[in-house]
Design a protein around this nucleic acid. Structure first.
Lengths: 155, 155
DNA sequence: AGTGAAAAACAATGGCG
DNA sequence: CGCCATTGTTTTTCACT
């Protein structure tokens, strides 16, 4: 399952516009629609092409605040840590949660309606957990760049 | 352009699986395919449904390292700051760049092949810029959660 | 590996209840 | 808003190079 230049072009186009069909892809990639179709099936089967997702406007959904929360954790037993992670996964305002090297131990990306709901989320759900030692919250002032497109230069 | 419960269901389904057509959406939403089709056009026209994008497997693209970089900036003239932001937008290993309240001033999310390419990116491109005062890099050890799905509870 | 044409599936539109 | 039929387009498949 090595990816060649044609696959690269297909993937690049799909990261930009995921609802491009084989017919529209053909002139971009320089391949017939039928071959694109065949390669798309293969890329899906190989797990390279994982999913197609809609990107929605936060403003239209009354999401006015984006924020990062840097957490340091208390050392608890693995079971409690897992329970905390499960809780995080169940909260839909938490878009991202990553465990990190060094300090902080964990970073969270949040999307909420306003400062009041951000405060509620922090106070009543995050800081309330005994697993959390400290939390530093930074609100997003300006979005310089935000893409879901992975770099393709390493293929 | 108020969004009702049907729109919410359409958007929720599309955030999960963006290539679902009206025919497949119909039973999920509880609406006929023709109505779904009309609502989709409206949602696109209103800018609620912004784009459809493919999500690719980082592993398949030889992306072995994810990292966050927290930057504090030197106070420079606006022109230099803008040039720095343009440079960031042009780097495809930088997935995200947000200006924050407090300290750090800026956070970056990176995707690179390995530690060597991460080091190269930091040393030769980020730290080389005079706009950067300090940089703290944290490598992602474990992905607990990562979604592009915005919360729909505020609509 | 790739092309091109036929076959099948699907989305979009309009009319009517 | 559901239902239905129609139309146009697109994907998919197959025979062939």
């Amino acid at each position: 399952m090595p990816l060649d230049g044609f696959d690269r072009k297909i993937l690049a186009a799909l990261q930009e516009k995921g609802d491009t069909g084989p017919a529209d892809l053909a002139p971009i990639v320089g391949l017939s629609a039928s071959q694109i179709s065949r390669r798309l099936q293969q890329l899906r089967k190989d797990g390279v092409l994982r999913a197609i997702r809609a990107s929605l406007s936060p403003e239209a959904l009354n999401i006015g605040i984006g924020a990062y929360v840097m957490l340091t954790m208390t050392s608890t037993d693995p079971g409690a840590a897992q329970a905390f992670r499960d809780q995080i996964c169940a909260m839909d305002e938490i878009l991202e949660c990553q465990m990190l090297t060094g300090s902080p131990d964990m970073i969270l990306k949040l999307a909420t309606r306003d400062l009041a709901s951000l405060n509620d989320l922090l106070s009543n759900h995050l800081l309330a957990a005994p697993e959390v030692a400290t939390a530093r919250t930074s609100i997003i002032l300006q979005e310089v760049k935000s893409t879901s497109a992975q770099p393709l230069r390493f293929v």
